[in-house]
């Protein structure tokens, strides 16, 4: 019989183990979310990360090794972005009618996001490289990483900031918007897409299909706007 160490050393070299672990931890996270009736705080992404991170640490697995397996899941971020065309198409007439409120909410949400994150970080005395890392945090990960690089931030830390932002957005959106007594699903979805990109959009899609379509649009528009305004706003804080 082959001993455990040998099997482990074989499995830990290929992509199979960590791809399976990614799907398994997410399945656990999703089961928890369903069991909690999709309560905002029980977020499947957070649960999966909270299970995987200590697992990597305990087994001494470097992130690069983990990513070799997980890249197959990561790759689908592109195709899922293309898939957002479907809810957009189905809601095109409503989106066209809402052009004015959307444009106003896009500018207001995007500027508020970048200005407030930099103002709070600066008040805590964080340095210029961390400010550059934070400035694009509301944009979807691939865009934010590109912007961070250009501004002199840390791209990989920006990716983490983007994810935490998305998770915060997914958790706070429902209670916050209920508190504000906003019932318009277009306003609710769009603002979450602008402030919390894909993770916010994923949450919006689970709550309401109109909110999901407008969230996807908010995410796409803010990816473009953040690329344009983040450098300008950062300059105000340096």
């Amino acid at each position: 019989m082959t001993d455990f160490a040998e099997i482990w050393s074989y499995l830990s070299r290929g992509p199979l183990l960590w791809l399976t672990a990614t799907l398994a931890t997410y399945a656990i996270g999703d089961a928890c979310a369903r069991w909690a009736n999709r309560a905002p705080l029980v977020n499947p992404v957070l649960i999966a990360v909270a299970l995987l991170a200590p697992l990597l640490w305990l087994t001494g697995t470097p992130y690069a090794t983990y990513f070799e397996g997980a890249q197959f899941v990561h790759f689908l971020l592109g195709p899922v972005t293309i898939s957002l065309a479907l809810p957009l198409c189905e809601n095109l007439p409503r989106i066209r009618r809402a052009a004015l409120p959307m444009l106003a909410a896009l500018v207001a949400g995007s500027v508020t996001s970048a200005v407030s994150v930099l103002a709070i970080a600066k008040a805590f005395g964080l340095g210029p490289d961390l400010l550059a890392t934070l400035a694009p945090k509301a944009a979807t990960a691939p865009v934010a990483i590109g912007i961070s690089e250009r501004l002199g931030g840390s791209p990989t830390l920006t990716a983490v900031m983007v994810l935490i932002t998305g998770a915060i957005g997914a958790v706070v959106a429902t209670p916050l918007l209920n508190l504000l007594r906003l019932k318009d699903w277009r306003a609710r979805g769009f603002s979450v897409g602008v402030a919390a990109h894909g993770i916010g959009t994923a949450r919006a899609l689970q709550v309401n299909s109109t909110a999901g379509a407008f969230a996807g649009l908010g995410m796409a528009l803010n990816a473009v706007l953040t690329a344009l305004i983040a450098p300008l706003i950062l300059r105000l804080f340096l």
């Binding site: 799907l23 997410y26 999966a48 983990y66 949450r203």
Partner: peptide, 13 residues
């Protein structure tokens, strides 16, 4: 869609 953010999220380590 949420699943697809897990690999990048683990980058937190």
């Amino acid at each position: 869609m949420s699943l697809l953010f897990v690999p990048a999220g683990v980058g937190v380590v």
